[in-house]
Design a protein around this nucleic acid. Structure first.
Lengths: 123, 123
DNA sequence: ATACATGCAAATCTTTTGCAATCAA
DNA sequence: TTGATTGCAAAAGATTTGCATGTAT
């Protein structure tokens, strides 16, 4: 694992946001650890391949990177905000419904966040 | 709804595959309904905005377009093949676990398809 | 006549790659 | 010294946009 990959992993694991490659790049720069954006992408690919980070693809947005602690995601239909949610043993519940062996899953719940609900109420 | 959008919607609804914009473009060409790829994208955006089609984003692949009949997806971890699966009232089950009002969800189950399992067994 | 739909090319954005320079074992 | 790591620029691939033209109401 390279020095840069380590920094990046640390950033991802210590952030509660879901960072894009660009944000991670800027974050490294701020900490005076200059790297090329291409190197960030390369390191992210490596970390992802090794299963050390999770990659979240959302249509129309750059990919986001997340820690691997098990949790699911919710996306606000209005503003696109991404937040975490943890559901109880969903793999088990899914597994009950199919014979196929489920390795893992990727769930995004679509909802409307409180901010957007408040805005709607006003209108 | 424009003429092109109608054709495209028909193609998506009558296909059991999950087509990319490019495939839809080629499909139209075959049927002698020439359109520009940009127009396909524009029509797809429109259809998606109107909720008439579903968009599936998978990392590293072009987006795929799907009919809106409720069903979920499985992705083979090895070969990336995308298939359909229908789960019983998952929204209800999810809703039991959270107070947030769930509009819908997007689930991808990660598994290993039969073909890839067979290949693994041989090796 | 007006507003929308189209085709084409060019622009954009994210991500990957090639290659030369650098670093570490 | 050898091979991996980096930075930079350029390429690649998917999607969007600008604009001039065409079409339908």
């Amino acid at each position: 694992m390279t020095k840069n990959a380590k920094y990046i992993l640390k950033i991802i694991n210590s952030s509660s946001d879901h960072l894009t490659a660009e944000q991670i790049y800027l974050c490294l720069k701020e900490r005076n650890k200059a790297v090329a954006l291409a190197t960030v992408y390369n390191s992210l690919s490596f970390l992802h391949k090794e299963g050390l980070i999770k990659k979240i693809s959302i249509e129309g947005c750059p990919d986001r990177y997340d820690n691997t602690k098990r949790h699911d995601h919710m996306i606000c239909k209005k503003c696109g905000k991404l937040s975490d949610i943890t559901l109880e043993n969903l793999t088990g519940r899914l597994q009950e419904q199919t014979d196929i062996y489920i390795i893992s899953y990727d769930l995004k719940i679509i909802y409307i966040c409180d901010d957007c609900l408040a805005k709607e109420d006003k209108a």
